[in-house]
Structures are given as structure tokens and as C-alpha cells.
């Protein structure tokens, strides 16, 4: 049973010209917080998500530096708008501006199973390029390489060649491993993105909400368990509301409606918006500050109706007439 495979991209840099003593100190562990805060407070880039990835692994052999980044977060709907390799350099000596820099991008699956990983150190070159002057810049204590194009090319090659024979592979370890296409990235639920982020951040820390949730028992009122938010049957009778004289068809129909309690904090199956999730969490910690979220339709469909208007018969589709799904809002 192979271990779970994650996608790791390796960025390998080599100073092409042999510089006797590398004029740079080792790049320190990057501290991107200040940079990201500057982005947040300053002129935000025109992108929906900016990620500052921590290098998972850094290997330095002379003038060959290899950085491993976990790209398994990438989901299909995201389009790469820009990528920079930011190296924080210790007290900057002479920047190696004279030496051309070669950047190579490799793909290497990461197996969670250690044995599998050592047996199949499969590495595939996706793209390579020599950095031009316009692609490198220095800002305060960092060297910034713009790698957007190469990375986009690499990711494209990767998604395009998943099923193809592994022709571009360089360091394949042998036949028995074979080439395995990367697994689809960790699936994100369709609901609130923040809920997912919060849950995963919690998982990484202490799994707090899950524990709290596990402790909770279904609430009871008068000995009866209170039903959670769901869709229930609801017959609309046009005669009953006095519309029978002008609505010809249907005279009544199944509209469904939403009923039940919204739990605090919320779960994904109630398809909350980010706001609803936050409100449910606030209700959990500070019950008096906000009301619970409400069980309400989140998906509806239209109904065709035949009705009288000025003595003429009209057929029309009225939207939002039938409830298809309920959620907490």
C-alpha cells in the first residue's frame, strides 16, 4: 500500500560561474512575516491569494542550492499570477550580480511512508532557465528572483504529463516504482474557506474545536432532542391565502421550507458562509453577544405558474419558489 503522495517542487539554483569564495553567507531561514505585513498594509497585489511558502528543505552543496516547497495546496481553480523566490541573505556582501544564475524546477513526489520515499526518489525536471537581469532584484536584505514564467511552465508540464510516460524524468530510481501521477491535492470543502483554514490551523495546533464538538451532546428540550437545520415539507395552498381566484395552476404545490437549529460552532454540512461560521463561533464563546445563525434556504428553484391577469391567462416562471437546500446563514 503506497503512502500518500504529496507534490513537492524543488527549485535548484546554481551559480554558473565558478566564484572562488561565494560572496554570500548562507541564506538564513526566511522570515517573511515583515514582508507579508508590508503587502497587507500597503499596495496589495492584484491577486486573490498570496502565499509565502516556507521551504521544507534546504540543501546547499557549494554553489548548488536546492529548496523544496510543498505545492500540494494548489487546486485546479487557481491560476498562478506570480512567483518570487525570496532569499534572505545575511549581512549582504557583494551580490553575485556578475555570475549568471541557473534555476531548475523539479517535481518530486513526497511519500508519507518513509520506505516508499527512499525506494522511489523520483525526480523530474519541469523547467529551467538562466536568470536575466530583469528577473533578479535586491531589496534590503533579500535577493528576489522572479520565477513566475518557469514555475507556470513547470506546473503546466506537470498537469499535462500526468498520464504520459515519464520521459522528462532525470533521476528515476528504477522500474519497480514506476511513475505515479500526483494525487489530487487535499480536497477542500465547497463551503466556507475560512472554516477550512481554521480547522486546519487548529488541527496543526491543538484540535480544539473538534474536541469541543466531540464533548457536546445533542441538546434536548422537554426530553426531546432538538432537530438540527434541515429541509421539511411545506405545502403552499393558494386557496388558503386568497390567491385562488387568480392563480390557475398549480392550486397548491410543495415549496419545502427550512427548520431546525444551527449548531454553534457550525459544521461544514450546514454550508455556512465565512460570516455565518464566525457568528456561530462567536455565539459559542460569547453566547450573549450575537444570536445564533438562522436555518434558511441556500438553494432554490423556480416554479412555472399559470395565472390570470386582466382577464388573460399568463404563463410565467417565478424564481425562488421551491427550496432545494437549507443551510445556516
Amino acid at each position: 500500500e503506497p503512502g500518500k503522495m504529496l507534490l513537492v517542487l524543488l527549485l535548484q539554483m546554481a551559480w554558473e560561474a565558478a566564484v572562488s569564495a561565494l560572496p554570500l553567507a548562507l541564506p538564513s531561514s526566511p522570515s517573511p512575516l515583515a514582508y507579508m505585513l508590508r503587502l497587507y498594509h500597503g499596495h496589495q497585489p492584484r491577486a486573490h491569494i498570496v502565499r509565502s511558502l516556507q521551504a521544507q528543505d534546504v540543501v546547499m552543496e557549494g554553489q548548488h542550492w536546492t529548496f523544496a516547497f510543498d505545492f500540494s495546496f494548489l487546486i485546479q481553480e487557481e491560476k498562478l499570477a506570480g512567483a518570487e523566490l525570496r532569499l534572505q541573505l545575511e549581512p549582504l556582501g557583494e551580490p553575485p550580480a556578475e555570475a549568471p544564475i541557473l534555476v531548475e524546477i523539479f517535481h518530486q513526489p513526497r511519500w508519507e511512508d518513509e520506505d516508499q520515499a527512499s525506494a522511489c526518489p523520483e525526480r523530474r525536471r519541469l523547467a529551467s532557465f538562466v536568470v536575466t537581469d530583469s528577473q533578479v532584484s535586491f531589496s534590503s536584505d533579500s535577493m528576489v528572483l522572479r520565477v513566475t514564467e518557469a514555475l507556470a511552465r513547470g506546473l503546466e508540464a506537470l498537469s499535462g504529463a500526468e498520464d504520459a510516460p515519464s520521459a522528462g524524468r532525470t533521476d528515476a530510481a528504477g522500474g519497480e516504482c514506476g511513475h505515479r501521477a500526483p494525487e489530487p491535492p487535499r480536497g477542500r470543502p465547497a463551503g466556507s474557506t475560512l472554516l477550512w483554514e481554521a480547522e486546519s490551523s487548529w488541527r496543526a495546533r491543538e484540535g480544539r474545536v473538534s474536541q469541543e464538538r466531540a464533548k457536546r451532546k445533542p441538546r434536548r428540550r422537554n426530553g426531546l432532542a432538538i432537530r438540527q437545520c434541515r429541509r421539511v415539507r411545506f405545502q403552499v395552498d393558494f386557496n388558503l391565502i386568497g390567491w385562488g381566484s387568480w392563480v390557475i395552476y398549480p392550486k397548491q404545490y410543495e415549496a419545502f421550507r427550512c427548520e431546525g437549529e444551527c449548531p454553534n460552532p457550525m459544521e461544514e454540512r450546514f454550508s455556512p458562509t465565512n460570516h455565518a461560521y464566525i457568528q456561530s463561533l462567536l455565539k459559542f464563546y460569547q453566547p450573549h453577544q450575537v444570536p445564533s445563525t438562522c436555518c434558511a434556504p441556500v438553494k432554490t428553484k423556480a416554479l412555472s405558474m399559470l395565472y390570470l391577469e386582466n382577464g388573460k391567462v399568463l404563463l410565467d416562471h417565478h424564481k425562488d419558489m421551491i427550496v432545494e437546500e437549507c443551510g445556516c446563514r
Binding site: 517573511p32 512575516l33 507579508m36 503587502l39 497587507y40 496589495q44 486573490h48 491569494i49 498570496v50 502565499r51 509565502s52 511558502l53 516556507q54 510543498d70 495546496f73 474557506t193 483554514e197 486546519s200 490551523s201 488541527r203 496543526a204
Partner: peptide, 9 residues
Amino acid sequence: DGDGNIILR
């Protein structure tokens, strides 16, 4: 995020 990356979103 859960992996210690910093996200602006």
C-alpha cells in the same frame, strides 16, 4: 495556514 505558510487572502 496549517503548514506554517503565511497567506494573504
